[in-house]
Amino acid sequence: MTLLAVFTTVATREQADALARAAVEHRLATCVQVEAIHSTYRWQGEVVSEPELRLMFKTDAPRYAALEALLRQQHPYELPAIFALPVAQASTDYAAWVSTELR
């Protein structure tokens, strides 16, 4: 099983909670962690600097497409950053838990 850490950002806690709950309820992620960050980026020709919340969805490769579709459908941003990084290593017990919870 290939574990993935999938990331996106939102502006508010309510938005973060809604995406996290939807992903876990649909068994597209076993857990979603939310942390406060500060982002600086260029958007529509202007440099923007503002607080955001970063979400990390813990999932596996077979569920990525469905998770991405759910995030695109429910995400409040016009162009959300959605990307996945493979987990190089994970403890056997943790990987088994992820597999069980995604079924």
Rank of each mutant, 00 (worst) to 15 (best):
T2H: 14
T2E: 15
L3F: 15
L3M: 14
L4P: 13
L4C: 13
A5I: 10
A5D: 13
V6E: 07
V6M: 08
V6N: 07
T8G: 13
T8R: 13
T9V: 14
T9N: 14
A11K: 14
A11D: 15
T12F: 09
T12W: 08
R13P: 10
A16C: 12
A16I: 11
A18F: 07
L19S: 15
A20R: 03
R21D: 05
R21W: 02
R21Y: 06
R21K: 04
A22G: 09
A22N: 11
A23Y: 08
V24S: 04
H26D: 07
R27D: 03
R27P: 02
L28V: 06
L28I: 06
A29W: 06
T30L: 11
Q33G: 12
Q33N: 12
V34A: 13
V34F: 11
V34N: 13
E35L: 15
A36R: 08
A36I: 06
H38C: 14
S39F: 10
T40K: 12
T40D: 12
R42S: 06
R42M: 08
W43A: 08
W43H: 06
W43D: 07
Q44V: 09
G45S: 05
E46T: 09
E46A: 11
V47A: 10
V48W: 04
P51V: 13
L53Y: 11
R54N: 14
R54V: 14
R54M: 14
L55A: 07
M56D: 09
M56W: 09
K58H: 04
T59L: 00
D60N: 15
D60F: 15
A61Y: 03
A61M: 05
Y64T: 00
Y64G: 05
Y64P: 03
A66W: 00
L67T: 03
E68S: 02
L70W: 02
R72K: 04
Q73M: 07
Q73K: 06
Q73R: 09
H75G: 02
P76N: 01
Y77F: 02
Y77G: 04
E78S: 00
E78K: 03
L79M: 08
L79K: 06
P80V: 02
P80A: 00
A81C: 14
A81K: 13
I82R: 02
F83P: 12
A84C: 11
A84Y: 12
L85T: 12
L85V: 13
L85G: 13
A88M: 11
Q89N: 07
S91T: 03
T92H: 15
D93C: 10
D93G: 11
Y94K: 03
A95K: 07
A95V: 06
A95W: 07
A96V: 11
V98Q: 06
V98S: 06
V98C: 06
S99Y: 07
S99T: 09
E101I: 10
L102N: 01
L102V: 02
R103Q: 05
R103I: 00
